[in-house]
Nucleic acid binder design. Structure first.
Lengths: 201, 201, 201, 201
DNA sequence: AATGAATGAGAATTCATTCAT
DNA sequence: CATGAATGAATTCTCATTCAT
């Protein structure tokens, strides 16, 4: 259907990079604070201290702003996941899974309002799943881990979706600092993977 | 935040009830087909064959339309769940859970596009979870079933969220008719509840 | 290329017809007075005393306003031509031609500024010549007259263009009340048709 | 009304002259191809390979670009006319007229799209006719030729306008390569001048 | 009650022009 | 001089809502 909106030009100079960052920061703040209804390009420009014309130099339209924010979220998730895998290397699978869940929960807790909106307002025609490099990288990490763990690596896709979905869902509507969210999600994912329960020593 | 919009009046007369149904049907069709961006009250009125003025007789504003659609969805879910419980009465817990998952998946598969949008576009300030009678009823059903099954009935809230989230998420982005969705979700939920796996005889 | 903008809806009620007339009148006044550069939809709405939203109910976009004005001009021209032919029926061809030229000049002199702009600003993708009913009617009238006069009726198309062009051109840049414009144009068209000169008795 | 925009500086250096030429070329291409609506200074700069800042070094504003294009057209017309007169020197007036018409048609056929736009989009407050040296020279040529031919040289102004108008009009809307355009225009102008028809021997 | 014409605040986007580098 | 990032006034157009009929 509709093409995915792309950033209009790659900012090369320092000033430009700063402008793009300011725009995204303002967009994130508005979305997180007041929701999509209050999210309009004029307000983003004003809050970011950038002329509305400049905003349109870097983002061809409103959707492109959402897209950029979405992409940024993906990159952060990937980094957090890599970190969790690195830190828990060599531990039993169940603990590795728990580490990843904890990392994802932490990451999302940090920008709760923003993700809440991104999740809800990301338009229908969003990028076909796994068609973009970030999703692909995410997928590859998980598949590799599954293989290494002795699970069916074909489950990477569903596992990722389930994890993402559970993290968002439970954070959004439940008390984000409720005890036991980590365990609940980990148990559910382990159940799907048929990983044995911890030996609580 | 904002108050939750309620239907302005309960239509008592046949003509009114028909108008309301037509409006909701049109709204659902537009949301499912073209997404929230194309969802505006004038278009709903036109497609439903009801005057825009009449639409505002039954729904005080645009949000109320979304709310009504959401409520309808809740009612259908509740009915499907009750049915699944009734049909699987007396079977082992794991099978009952599987029956409920299958019912939910079936229900959602039927109106995929609409739920896709409702899920994504339901506004921030939607009704606080479980604050409405339908959610409460849903919660009560599950809590009762958990107690009866020997599980901690305090898990009803999280279980419901997880189930809803998984059903939506997997249906939305994966192939909705992919084999194994039922099992994947059932396994995950059973993992959370620490229900023993099937004895595959 | 681009489709020709059409009026959005046919006004049925008296109030609507009045609104459409007011809008067109305002548009004409602005174009005639200040040119295309000053012609924007907000100004048209304001001057016409109609809300900007209403303007867009009847004209889907700015171009549609120009199109409507253009069409109106065509209709007026056709009426003037018919009148001239009726009044000069039975006179020698040269006199009939002169009558038509005089009618066209009169008509254009009346709304000089407007036609000046319409002529200049009518966009590239204007209606293919003679594809609309008015042009077709104009063409038919002239062809019939040529046949009746003993001239090659295939010349109707070129004759119409030449006449239109000369009328506009000479009115626009020359003194519109200069003596002799009628004769100059009539002589030129007669030259093309190889009609004999008057016998000045 | 507004003052006529003049080129800001006469480019003396080779680089400058090249830049100006490139700018005009790009402007012509855009106007011819996509019309006035798509004609904006940024796009001209981009297509010409010249920085937008540099464009404004040579042309104080957008109108000045149109003006320069218009002027260039005038110069080409003058040259073509002189050429036609030189080549047909000594022939009967009717043939000289025909030669001039043919030259003008050829010239216009070459850059049809561009002239189409220039003709239509040249703004209201364009230079008063014959106020610029090129128009004056054109006028002088024709007046001299008329005197030499035995016609009333006061008709030069009207004749020029008629010729220009007919050439544009017929080229624009009729098939530009249609047979007989030359003769049609020549006959019309000769009719206005009361030149005798050819002796077809 | 039902209608739909009218409204106008507000949103998205453009583009001529400037000016710091 | 050349550049092109930055600007923001101005413009087109939308859509939730009202209200006279």
């Amino acid at each position: 259907m509709s093409a995915i909106p792309q950033p209009r030009k790659q900012p090369r100079q320092a000033r430009s990079r700063h402008a793009v960052a300011a725009i995204l920061e303002a967009a994130a703040r508005i979305l997180a604070g007041d929701g999509y209804a209050a999210f309009n390009t004029n307000r983003v420009a004003e809050l970011s201290g950038v002329g509305i014309g400049s905003l349109y130099q870097y983002f061809p339209n409103k959707q492109a702003l959402l897209a950029a924010l979405h992409r940024r979220h993906g990159e952060e998730t990937l980094a957090a996941l890599d970190d969790a895998l690195a830190r828990s290397a060599g531990r039993p699978p169940r603990e590795q899974l728990a580490a990843m869940v904890a990392a994802a929960l932490d990451l999302h807790r940090r920008e709760l309002g923003l993700h809440r909106v991104l999740e809800r307002e990301w338009p229908i025609y969003d990028e076909p799943p796994a068609s973009n490099p970030i999703d692909a990288a995410l997928h590859a990490r998980i598949a590799a881990w599954l293989a290494e763990t002795g699970c069916d690596s074909a489950r990477a896709g569903l596992l990722l979706r389930m994890a993402d979905s559970l993290v968002h869902c439970l954070l959004l509507d439940a008390d984000p600092h409720a005890k036991g969210l980590d365990e609940a999600i980990t148990d559910a994912l382990a159940g799907y993977l048929a990983l044995p329960a911890y030996h609580h020593t």
